[in-house]
Nucleic acid binder design. Structure first.
Lengths: 358, 358
DNA sequence: GTGAAAGCGCTAACAG
DNA sequence: CTGTTAGCGCTTTCAC
């Protein structure tokens, strides 16, 4: 293996100069820099990142803990995050928690700071406080932290629950003329304090209800408790059909659930959107080619990843500079776009069926 | 940060003994081992992996280069691979090549062996030879190596092109009574030698044609050139419809393509499977909840990942042991299961539409 | 079985 | 601007 020492010898400089040159520090004369770089190329030198990390304390490696890549939401997220980091010369290790809070904690505890500059966590079970105890001094950025605003430990990025559900509900009411709208995806509480209200407060359902209320359309039947999964959606569609389908629109809290709902309704022979309009949330790709295509709140995954890496970088800098001035954890809400497709608009006569709404 | 030195002090042993104890080497007395482990737990010691990698030459980190995680096939693959490695105490870095052969090579060249014990590559553009030049001494395992058997440089794992397409074709012929079967997904050649025959020889289309031939159903119209993507599938469906749909079944070379075909056929008002039966290949999740659900050759992703990590481990051992005895690269073909669903069977009268074929 | 010492390849501190 | 020196935390000889 070619070492820095050999490159330095080849270029006729000392190892420290070679090191500085390859890191493009300004203290090296351009001419010297060039000689070193050429020598490195000639020898096909590759830096030993372990040695660098050991000495400098920075590995340029980050870890993302994600429930499952078979869920398209997380897959797109991981994709965007990996690309965003890659564009900045950093690498991403993926750890799959399999939707298990304990696995997640175990994975975090096994991380050593020397090979991980920072941690991105999509937790479905652990609060910032719990993560903090496990992560120690490692910078952490959370995504859709559901543990409440009062005890925010870390910077976090949120999907646009308020704006997104409002846009979906407005669309259903104003453009589709729906009045009996169900909000599908209320979560059974999974938090320690056992209060359903608390979990709800911080999640999309609550915002959707607010939006319904603003139209004077909220009642005790507005909220439908349901897991955010395809299978749960299918089951729920059958259950609602058995009740005579008391809704003319179902505003689903994520796309997988919405696609399950659509499948279940198809099995029941209930037409979407004529009998029931359906909206999703996330903007995963498969909603663009199902029949009917799914109207959904498309989250800006790339923006989420860009912002996330930028925020993370700040934290890393702060840590490196030993800056311990207390700061408030930031919360950033990412952008979205309401994609109006067939599950609310139908196959419009003018466009027929020949263009694919994206 | 707690170092091994501190753990050793706490346990009242030397650092080397502490090191051996924590690595569970047999040379340490059980009693001593216990003391060291307790000390480590007490201090919440986490090994500095950079230092370990620098000294030992092993990082327990692997890299997978994958075209895109928004493609469900690769997402499931990455998921399975990450889990398989995780189960063995190893980590996976994901690099997204964005379907670009040059990006892929650049990523491989930037890898340094000290932080990467081995490389998993899903290449869509580079042959084993080209990868070999870029990867140097790093162990590599390829997935669906399309560069031909003659110049195999690395161990590889293949999806079951022959068995899978044969199963799909047999199903279409014997159980669905189809005779005018199109094989969708012939690839334009992307290899250096410019021979279409070469790329074909090694891909699924060829095996599908073989299967058709065995039923006496192959002719010059059997093969339909088409990209393996949703959009290409939609376009192709329209094009075939414009030709009066000369097929009663379309055997698609992957699921995304098949789902695109189904979407396009729906736009054309062509019923699946009554007018045209459709089969896919891969077994991605969304085929289980589209309407109709997709009959497909479901690849054993977990088996693929398990076998892959095992084969990789062998290579790593060989390298560590400096075993240079020449060996033939292995090729392993993973298992599959033909999932018979609505896109070929229809919504059977008995089960109605109430159960979801998985 | 255990400890002392050397050193993996690099960067940071300082001297020139 | 460049070189010398020290040492990051660990594993690996090799004595004992």
């Amino acid at each position: 293996m070619v070492t820095l020492k050999q490159v330095a010898a080849e270029a006729g400089v000392s190892t420290s100069t070679a090191s500085s040159a390859l890191r493009d520090l300004d203290i090296v004369r351009p001419e010297t820099k060039r000689r070193v770089i050429e020598a490195a190329n000639r020898l096909d030198y590759r830096i030993n990142t372990s040695a660098r990390a050991l000495r400098s304390g920075r590995s340029d490696i980050f870890i993302a803990i994600i429930p499952d890549l078979d869920n398209q939401y997380y897959a797109r997220f991981a994709n965007a995050l990996s690309n965003a980091l890659s564009d900045r010369g950093k690498r991403l290790i993926l750890q799959i928690s399999r939707y298990d809070g304990d696995t997640e904690l175990r994975q975090i505890r096994s991380i050593d700071p020397s090979t991980c500059d920072g941690l991105f966590v999509c937790s479905i079970a652990n609060s910032g406080k719990v993560l903090h105890d496990a992560a120690g001094s490692i910078p952490v950025l959370m995504f859709d932290d559901m543990s409440g605003t009062a005890d925010a430990y870390y910077d976090s990025i949120e999907t646009p629950g308020q704006g997104g559900t409002a846009a979906a509900i407005n669309h259903l009411v104003n453009e589709c003329g729906r009045r009996r709208i169900g909000v599908v995806g209320a979560l059974a509480d999974r938090h320690d304090d056992g209060s359903l209200a608390r979990a709800l407060r911080t999640n999309r359902c609550n915002f959707a209800l607010q939006a319904l209320r603003s139209h004077g359309l909220a009642d005790e039947r507005s909220l439908i408790a349901c897991d955010w999964s395809v299978d749960a959606g299918i089951d729920m569609a059958h259950r609602l059909a058995a009740q005579g389908m008391p809704y003319d629109a179902l505003c689903c809290m994520n796309d997988e659930l919405a696609l399950g709902i659509m499948r279940g309704l198809a099995e029941e022979g209930i037409n979407v959107p004529d009998a029931v309009a359906v909206t999703g949330f996330d903007g995963i790709t498969s909603g663009s080619y199902t029949t009917p295509t799914l109207t959904t709140v498309a989250v800006d995954f790339e923006g989420m990843a860009q912002t996330g890496t930028a925020m993370m970088e700040q934290q890393v800098e702060r840590l490196a500079a030993n800056d311990t001035t207390p700061i408030m954890p930031q919360r950033v809400i990412v952008g979205f776009q309401l994609l109006k497709r067939e599950s609310t608009l139908g196959r419009t006569a003018t466009t027929g069926f020949t263009t694919r709404p994206r």
